[in-house]
């Protein structure tokens, strides 16, 4: 045997010693991916998490949820309240501004009248 052949064999021997037992089987199982029974086991573990009386609890919770106002109706009520408040603020603001305008106009008219009287007197 040539020295390099011996070296190659030694290399292969050392490399294969690194492989753990059941290597070929593990490779095949990895390549195939999870099998049906693993999936079935996964689903059945999930199914076992439900406590007895699950359906009754669901129906009770659904009834309670139905009695509560829906998110949409709560939102509609909030929007209506906000609209009424905004309307009230705008109304009060309009009234205040109008009253101030009338007052200012009356004062200006009085000033104008005084100014006209002064001008006529002169």
């Amino acid at each position: 045997m040539k020295p390099e052949e011996h070296a190659w064999q030694e290399l292969q021997r050392r490399a294969s010693a690194q492989l753990r037992g059941g290597f070929a089987d593990r490779v095949v199982r990895t390549a195939r991916g999870p099998q049906e029974d693993s999936w079935r086991a996964l689903f059945s573990v999930g199914a076992r998490q439900l406590r007895p009386g699950f359906a009754e609890r669901v129906l009770r919770a659904a009834r309670a949820a139905a009695e509560m106002p829906s998110l949409a109706s709560q939102f509609a009520l909030s929007a209506a309240t906000a609209a009424v408040c905004l309307g009230a603020v705008l109304f009060v603001h309009h009234q205040t501004v109008e009253a101030a305008d009338e007052r200012n106009l009356a004062e200006w008219q009085a000033i104008v009248a005084v100014a006209e009287d002064d001008a006529a007197g002169l």
């Binding site: 689903f43 573990v45 439900l50």
Partner: peptide
């Protein structure tokens, strides 16, 4: 609910 609870639970767990 009773008919589908286990299948839905399995799906949720997955």
């Amino acid at each position: 609910v009773v008919s589908y609870q286990h299948r839905v639970a399995g799906f949720v767990y997955a």
